[in-house]
Amino acid sequence: MSSMQAAQSLDRTFAALADPTRRRILARLARGEATVNQLAEPFQISQPAISRHIRVLAEAGLIVQRVDGTRRPCRLAPDALSELDQYLEMLRGALTRNYQRLDELLASQTETKTETKTETKTETKTKRRRRDPP
């Protein structure tokens, strides 16, 4: 992609994102594929209006539609963000969840330990080692 094309594509992306209804449509699609009817549900606007928003989002490359009988379900386009951004967000998502679990694990270890409080650091260490499961 040339820098001119990249700039145009970015313009389209931002224009598409400038509208709050379209941002809410994207947020809904982040939870999974949805039909036009499902997308229209939470908004007090007509289905043609929703279809117009969907077209803008699709032209900006943010969402894709597939044909399923008479329905045209939408989902987020996998390439809407640069793959570096996607990678970093994937990493952030995985680590955030991991470290929340680690917080819980560490907290449960501390609970067991506070039963034998007020020790010096070395004593705590020895104590903990002794309390380890085999």
Binding site: L17, A30, P78, E89, R92
Partner: peptide
């Protein structure tokens, strides 16, 4: 690709 949801949350913030 679960990171996608976070990506779009970010996209929303950026926008």
């Amino acid at each position: 690709a679960h990171g996608m949801e976070a990506s779009y949350a970010r996209l929303e913030r950026v926008s």
